[in-house]
Design a protein around this nucleic acid. Structure first.
Lengths: 193, 193, 193, 193
DNA sequence: AAGTAATCGAGACGGTACGTCATGTCTTAGC
DNA sequence: GCTAAGACATGACGTACCGTCTCGATTACTT
């Protein structure tokens, strides 16, 4: 199997090129950091022409969002089960995602880039934060309805209070304390029983 | 008063140039965003030679850190008084700083840039986060010793739990809820009396 | 004729850009001297990006060499005819070239720059001096074979003896004496008859 | 003898600094070429402040001229004796000077720089070329008067015809042929007897 | 002996150009 | 109509020198 550069698809969008771009972006971010994540580097790494990237993505941020959304579906599912335990488990999973998973680095990078560029902030919010937030709010609502938890706060504020510290620790490079998650959970979510 | 564009200082560092750079960086960040904050733009805006910037600052991040540290001293003092009330007031001040003060934008931009560049993360931590954290830990310790509060967590974790949600809301562009701060304060800090 | 700043050539080298660079370099050298001949000035004058210059030429010296070679082909042809008269005419043409023609200024500038930079010296020699010298030697050889001249020196030394004084006068800003050329020609080349 | 960097001369011009600058310029030209001969490099090499150079020399060219004039007096004397032989010897000495002596490199560099900058050309002419030319013309005049030579050309043109080829060979990096000097001497100067 | 003046080293300053890199737009030619 | 390839104008990067300047020290002439 010498080269087989890739079968050209001719008229249609080349799925292989799409995947190659997504993987190249992901790999570069993890291996060399956001600073090295240039369109030219992605094209080089993916073996794809620059124009092919510009044709399908308006910016490198959207590429990262595509990989992040894909990876989140695979590795950071919002649980269906609304027990207090599965809720707590979700917090722990999120903490691991954000500190250890390469896709978590993508999330942090996008959150960061959102501070430098309003368009990124808007995209991240619309395509990622809001949809997740809806799922999470529903999860909490189900748990409240089931009498599993009795939060001391409105659902949105509660979610900020729970995820905020985890994200902040990840951003500042502190370890995310298990004690911290426990205390937040006990004090704010108030599991019943 | 004819012209006098600026008095040259000759052999010594030119204080006027230093201030011009700091202000230019601050202004550009606020007015055009981090993306427009290039060394050339700062030099242009400040009426200063590029080399003068490179002579004194290793990167634009250090310029921003200088402005941030200066502004924090002026507008985000850690209170001396260790009452529960002044502690809560500090949280509110921080929330306003981070969402409304131009210097707060600088802080968020640096936190963000730290995700893209480890050197920034390290500088921010050493020159800003750690010194502030020390002061805040001492504040909490005094309050505990005075019997003003009875926190449910270790001091570091507690600080992350308190500031994390505020920073997270600022990063995602959500409003920082007063209810949120209250609930965190009541549930985690547990003011006595 | 609306605007049409220049038609972009896309994938291929842009011939218009190439010519614009050559002319800009030539014009700048003649109008403002070698000191003003910076890559940035050429790019400005030619309405071309700096990178376009660096893509095709390793240095401004090679740009000048390109113009010199082109101009020499047009205005300083080595004669085909090997009569003593045409040989003498060639010397006179060379003297005019080197003192009056803008392309002659380019030649002198390159010869000069060769003293400051060995790479220039090497390029000038390989791309200009040696090829011309070959043609001139052949010319002399033909004239000797035809019995037109009977030089008192080897061909290479003879060429140095003939062109050296002309170049030296041009370099020092002296006028190139017609008497000088005649005397050299009579004494060293020794036309027969 | 620990350091003794140099004795300060106080009010007067510091002769040691003057010499250090001349030697540094000379050394740098020979060792690293004209391109590396910057005022800053000379100051560095000489252990002298930049301002000290600017105070006494209007440009680096004048520094080189100072060294050249000094070295010429020492190593390229125009002979007093007006015999044909000593005249021929002078030509050979000049050829060696220009191809082997470091001071010869200085001469070529200045001649070259004169092509890039009219002020240099003017200085070189006034301070070096013209004074030498006067001496050389006198030498020839004495030789003619003494019946030692019978040149076929006016004295100035003759000098150009003699030195031109030597300089040209030095400029193009060719070897200066002994045969060449002989032929020029015999054909143009025509020594009697 | 005290004051004046010029020199020196050091080095900051506003500039200009360097050569490199990534941007996003474009055209070509092949499938 | 997609693709790989890559030229192009733009503009920032960080570095090196330019020539001017100001400083504080040193030393020699004046009074």
């Amino acid at each position: 199997m010498p080269a087989s550069p890739r079968v050209r698809s001719g008229n249609r969008r080349d799925e292989a090129a799409r995947l190659a771009v997504l993987h190249a972006a992901d790999d570069l971010l993890v291996s060399h950091g956001f600073a090295a994540l240039t369109i030219e580097a992605i094209a080089r790494e993916a073996g794809v022409a620059k124009q092919t990237i510009y044709r399908w993505w308006p910016s490198k941020v959207e590429i990262l969002l595509d990989t992040l959304i894909g990876d989140t579906v695979k590795r950071l599912r919002v649980p269906e089960d609304s027990s207090a335990d599965s809720l707590r488990g979700y917090l722990v999973t999120f903490a691991r995602f954000v500190t250890e998973d390469p896709a978590g680095k993508v999330f942090l990078a996008l959150l960061a880039q959102g501070q430098h560029d309003p368009a990124t902030a808007e995209s991240l919010r619309k395509r990622y934060l809001v949809p997740r937030r809806i799922l999470e709010r529903e999860l909490l609502a189900r748990a409240v309805a089931a009498g599993e938890i009795a939060p001391v706060l409105g659902l949105d504020a509660l979610l900020d209070a729970l995820f905020g510290p985890i994200v902040y620790c990840a951003l500042t490079g502190s370890v995310v304390n298990a004690e911290l998650i426990d205390a937040l959970f006990m004090s704010l979510v108030r599991p019943c029983g």
